Simulated scan of single mutants.
Amino acid sequence: MASVQSRDMMLRIEDMGVTYPRNVLALRPTTVEFHKGEFTVLLGLSGAGKSTLLRSLNHLVLPTTGKVISAEFGTLNTSRMVRQHRCRTAMVFQHHQLIERHTALQNVLTGRLAYHSTWRSLFPLPRPELELALHCLERVGLAEKALARVDQLSGGQQQRVGIARALAQQPSMILADEPVASLDPATSERVLTLLRDICREDGITAVISLHQLEYAQRFADRIIGLANARIVFDASPAKLEQCHLDEIYHGAAGAVSAPAEPAVPKPQPESRSPKQLEIAQ
């Protein structure tokens, strides 16, 4: 029987599960839908399955079972569809994943490489791309740091560069994996406020993994709680009660042994040569 999808569906996973080598179950077969313009927080302890679920949404982690369905591109079952989906799905990482010896502007411009051929990306990008990158830095409050090397910026500023790089992709969806885990509370609130406000202004669907309850309750439109490699709560923050918190935070944490089935290793993200990342200021 065909699955029923809502009209505002942005991305859907159907019976998607992930098993790592040595038969370690990281995510039990799960079906869940993410909606257009929604700011969703994946909440849970380390090892609960948050990062695995998040990274599976753009196949940075390859599902062992089930499928991922994009409203824009359909089922992600070919390398071409995955590339198209990744182009429109930006990532914000916990440890920034920036090129520290490059300027903030050069790092933001890497968000545009997927829109150009390998040969074209070996040369300075055209002026409209520079203007777009500068605009993205301006939106995160870092226009004056455009020519500063990333290794001269604070952790909070580096994360804002990461958000600007994500915006440069002109995404329909942003995935953020523990984006404030390495930041102090004041900076964390600033980064999350910035990310939420930009997503609302642009109508971008966001899926953010966090382990801090207070941030999930404050910023999320929807909370998906995970424990023991499965979803145990899925509703608005107002419906999160103590019984749900007990299940999310006091259940046995960590990945568990799976029934015997083929294990699929995590794929490595596509990489570019150092020359391709050398973008002129």
Rank of each mutant, 00 (worst) to 15 (best):
E14L: 15
E189Q: 14
I204A: 04
V191C: 12
Q268N: 02
P179C: 03
T78K: 10
M9S: 13
V191I: 07
P259K: 07
P185S: 13
Q157Y: 03
D15T: 11
A26S: 12
P124T: 09
S172N: 11
V264L: 10
V256M: 12
E201N: 06
A166L: 05
A255W: 13
R222A: 09
I279L: 15
S273Y: 01
P124M: 07
G37R: 14
S6V: 09
L137E: 12
T103F: 06
A164P: 02
V61D: 03
V18Y: 10
L125P: 06
V108F: 08
H211A: 13
P185L: 09
V68R: 01
T205C: 10
H35G: 02
I231Q: 03
P179Y: 01
S236E: 13
V264R: 10
E14F: 05
K266I: 13
T65M: 02
L167Y: 04
R86L: 09
A186G: 02
L277I: 02
V140R: 03
I231P: 03
R160Q: 01
L53T: 04
S154D: 14
P171N: 11
E100C: 01
S188V: 13
P237F: 15
E247Q: 15
Q97T: 05
D8Y: 05
G162A: 07
T30H: 04
P237C: 11
L105M: 08
P128W: 07
A104Q: 00
A148I: 02
E278R: 10
T118S: 13
E131L: 06
F34M: 10
I204N: 08
G225E: 06
L195E: 06
M81E: 12
L25H: 02
C87E: 09
A260W: 01
V150K: 09
K145L: 08
A104M: 02
Q157L: 09
R196D: 05
V150A: 10
A252P: 08
V41Q: 04
L194S: 06
Q281F: 00
T64G: 04
G37W: 13
P126W: 11
L130D: 00
W119I: 15
D151E: 14
R127K: 09
V4S: 08
F73W: 14
G37T: 08
L122Q: 14
R230H: 05
P267Y: 07
F123C: 11
T64K: 02
E33F: 06
P265Y: 04
P128R: 02
A235H: 15
M16N: 03
